[in-house]
Design a protein around this nucleic acid. Structure first.
Lengths: 179, 179
DNA sequence: TCACACATGTAACACGTTACATGATTTG
DNA sequence: CAAATCATGTAACGTGTTACATGTGTGA
C-alpha cells in the first residue's frame, strides 16, 4: 500500500481499484484488507488521511504518504527479502490427476490460458500508457522511477511463460485424451 | 496433502520433507500446518493413520489416503480453479525503489537470481530421477501419471523465466548505478 | 427501473506463522 | 561432544477471507 501511494494519494476505494489492475501483478488484497490496513498505517503515522467532500458522491478519506511512510519504504527495501510462498491450485490438480480427471483438467488449463492472454493484453495496454510514446530505452535511462515499468515487464514475462507452459501441458493432455 | 499422499503413505515429518523438495514447487506449508491438517483430514475420514513402531527412532504415525480421500481429489479437480494470489516482496521493492535504494535493490535481485539457479539445479536432478533413463516422450505417453513430470516442467520453466527477468532488471540497475 | 459504480465499514471465521516444548539417535 | 536429524505437538498471535450492512448517483 505504501508503494502504491507513491503514485499519488488515494482513498481506500481508489486503492482497491489500483490493486485490481496494476498492483495485482505482484500483490493481491481485498478491499476489506485495505480499509483495515489504512487505519493501522494512519495509527502508525505512515500515512495521513484527510476528508474530501464531494457533491454528487459520498465523501471520501484520501490518504497520502508521510515522511515516516517514505522512510519505512526505504527500510523495507534494505531488509532481507522474504522468500515467496507459491500456492497454485492448478498445479495441485495437475499433480494429482489420473486418467479419469483429464477432461476436467483440460478445461482448467484452457481457462488458465485464457486468463493469461487477458492479463497479457492488459499489461500491454498499461505498458503503452506508461511509455507514452517514448522508447523503452529512453524511459529506463531518463525516467525518474524505473520500478513501475520493470514490474510490468516482470508481469508480462511471467504471463508469457504461463502461456507456453499451458500450451505444453494441453499438448500432452490432448495426446492422452485423443490417442 | 492429499495429492502428496498419492505418492505413498507418509508421517507428518516425512510429508514436511516432501513439501520442502518437490511439493514446494507449487505449494508451501510449515510442519505445524501439516500436523494440524492431518488431524483434520483424519477426522473427516480422508486419510487413515496407523502407528508404526520403530526401534531406534521415536514411533511415528503414518497416514494413507482413504477411498474418500481419493474421491475428494477427483471432486477438487472438477471444481472451478481459484485464481492464484501473487504476493512477492521483491516486486514491491522494485516498484517502490528510488535512486537511493538501487544498491540495496541490486543485492536483493542477486539473491533472487541465486535462489532461482539453485531451484533450477534441484529440479533438473528431480527430473533425471523421475525419468530414470527413459526419454521425456516415453514417460509422458507410457507412464501411469504424467502429473509429477508436468508440474516439475512448470517449475523449471518458471525459474528459467525468473532468471531471465533477474538478468534484465540487473542490467538496468547496473546502468543506473554505474552510469 | 434495474444494475452497476461509488464509498466505507463491522463481525465472524478461517488460515497461517512463530515461539515454545520434548527427547532420542546419528553424524561429524 | 556438539550439531543435525528424527518425530510430534501446543499455544498465542497475526493475517486474510467471507458475509453482511448501508446509502447515493449514474447509465442502459
Amino acid at each position: 500500500m505504501l508503494a502504491s501511494l507513491l503514485d499519488g494519494e488515494a482513498a481506500g476505494y481508489e486503492l482497491s481499484k489500483r490493486f485490481d489492475v496494476s498492483v495485482a501483478n505482484f500483490w493481491s488484497a481485498t478491499p476489506q484488507q485495505l480499509y483495515r490496513e489504512l487505519e493501522r498505517l494512519e495509527g502508525d503515522g505512515l500515512v495521513h488521511g484527510r476528508v474530501v467532500e464531494q457533491q454528487r458522491r459520498p465523501n471520501k478519506r484520501v490518504f497520502a504518504l508521510t515522511e515516516a511512510g517514505r522512510e519505512e519504504l526505504h527500510a523495507f527495501i534494505a531488509q532481507p527479502t522474504r522468500t515467496t510462498a507459491i500456492r497454485d491450485d492448478l498445479l495441485v490438480k495437475l499433480q494429482a490427476a489420473s486418467a479419469a480427471d483429464l477432461p476436467a483438467l483440460r478445461k482448467a488449463f484452457e481457462e488458465r490460458r485464457e486468463q493469461a492472454r487477458e492479463k497479457l493484453a492488459l499489461y500491454d495496454r498499461l505498458r503503452d500508457h506508461l511509455l507514452d510514446g517514448r522508447s523503452e530505452r529512453e524511459h529506463l535511462t531518463e525516467g525518474e522511477r524505473m520500478g513501475p515499468y520493470l514490474t510490468l515487464l516482470g508481469g508480462r514475462m511471467y504471463e508469457q511463460q504461463n502461456l507456453r507452459w499451458c500450451a505444453a501441458v494441453l499438448d500432452v493432455l490432448d495426446q492422452r485424451i485423443g490417442g
